[in-house]
Structures are given as C-alpha cells and as structure tokens.
Amino acid sequence: MIIKEEINISDDYLSSGLVPVVRIMNKIYNCEDEKVIIDCSKINFVSPVFVISFMLFVFSCKKKVSLRNITTYLETIHFFNAIEADKIDPDKFISTLRTYLNKTYIPVISFPALANRVADKDAILSAIENLLYKRLVIKTNVLIGLKYILGEMVDNITEHSESVRGYIFAQFYPSKGYIDICIADQGITLKGSFDKVGMKYSGDVEAMSAANSQVSSKNFPGSDNRGYGIYTSKNMLIDGLSGQFMMMSGTALYLKDNHIEDDLIELPKGFRLNGTLIAIRLPYQNKDFLYSNYVE
C-alpha cells in the first residue's frame, strides 16, 4: 500500500500535527498489507508534534513502513533521519547547529539518554539551548525558564524511561513570538516506569494522571521529594509564560494550558505509542516573567 497525503500543518495550535498523524496511522493499521510506503512528496509544512509523534507511532507499529520521495525540506529538518549528535565530533556538531542560526527550526536531533552518557547528553542539550538563545534573542529570565523546563523533560527520560536514545525537534514562529518543542523517547512509558517499582495503575491514562499529580516512580518512604519536575515546569510554562503542555505515553494523551485544565484522553482503540512524548508551546517574549516565582 502507498499512502500519499497532502500535509500542511497550521501553526495555530500546538497539537495541530496530531490529527494528520492519527489519520495516516489509521490507514496503516487498517490496510491488509504488511508493508506500507509513505509517499512524502506532498508533505509541505510540518510541526514538531507531527514529526516526532509520526516517528514514534511508526517505530511502535508492527508493520514495515518505509518512506519515499522525501523532499528537500524534509531532508533539511532530518525527518526520520535524526542527527545522532554524539556520533559526530562535538565541534562538528556545534558547527552543524550554527548552520541553523538563520532558520526557523532546529533539526530532529537524537541524543544518548542512559545515565552513563549524561555528560554527552548535557553537552548536546547545552549546544541546542545556546542556539535557541542566539536565534530567539530572549531575556535571561525566560532563558532560565526554558532551560529549567527542557532540563526536567530530558532528565526524566534518563531517570525513568530506560530508553537508549531521546529525540528533540523545535520550530520557532518569530512573528508570533513562540516556539514549539517536542521531546520524546522510545522507553517503557509512564505506566511501565510505575510498574517497575510496584506502583500499579490500571492503565496508561491513570499512570498519566499520576505523573501529572506529582507522583513519582522514585518516591520512597523517607525520600518523598521527587515528582516536582513536571509539576513546576508546567506551572512555569502555563502560569508564568501562558504556554501549553502536551504529553503522550502508551495509550494516553494529556493536555493543559490556561483554558484546558488537565485534559486526560484515551487514544483511539488500537493506537499505542511505545514511549513518551512531551510537546510544549513556549511564548518567549514575556518581559515580566520571573522563573523564581515558579520554583518550588
């Protein structure tokens, strides 16, 4: 089967990219063929949520999915061909990133996620943050907020997911003053992480609810101080910067912003992401934002 869809993701909403991905995956799941080809010639403009969720759903799919007619635009953003940042010389990686200084995105980058590679992971993330800082021209307080949020999201992959690699992709919208960032892993999911320590939740949505209510799989008696990362990051992002937060893990989807309060959603039957994805929309021009008001 060949799937050829015209894709033009609007930047109006953070999650706009998810519906086309669900529609394409639905065709893949429902076709009788075991091999599916995605013809990319009509994929014109994509978003971080589209790119990363599509990649993870395809990786999670039992069918053999391949791509053809990848356009120059998709090649430039490294669609399904993430830059493996730790596998190239650090100076070369930094000079590669510099070539994106005049672009409105950073390409899909894959980084090592296991605890024995934190120095590499942190150096890669710092290089990405430096690019964002130079490209967006943001105030120090917003930069610290961005680093705080990204740091917690990426460190959760190392601490909880057991994923060997993590992925990041970002798109800026300079005329609108916000940036969309998507970070994901191919790990054991939130529920899998809770299961490992005997914290049994009946499903992915219940585990998603717990993870977003300050419950951590690493809280033990006498050391009940974990689980602040996502919580404080969400406060900083939503209350402090009027941003948006989206999380997907297993069969669960969670959305939160100033208008939508803790929306817990079960993905359609048959849909499952083997891993966890977080997407944020971060307005970066708030002059009054003080990160210290949101640290707790």
Partner: peptide, 25 residues
C-alpha cells in the same frame, strides 16, 4: 494533587479527530 479529571475516550478515530480539532489546543 488529588483532584480527579474525567477520562475522555472515543468510539472512533473520527470522533477523536473532531474532538482534537474542536478544542483549539
């Protein structure tokens, strides 16, 4: 946090997609 949110589930992909399109998120 102990507040419970209602879990939304959908009978079809179309229902899910129309919900996602309707919420302006």
């Amino acid at each position: 946090i102990t507040k419970k949110s209602k879990i939304k589930s959908f009978n079809s992909v179309d229902e899910f997609c129309s919900y996602m399109t309707s919420i302006a998120f």
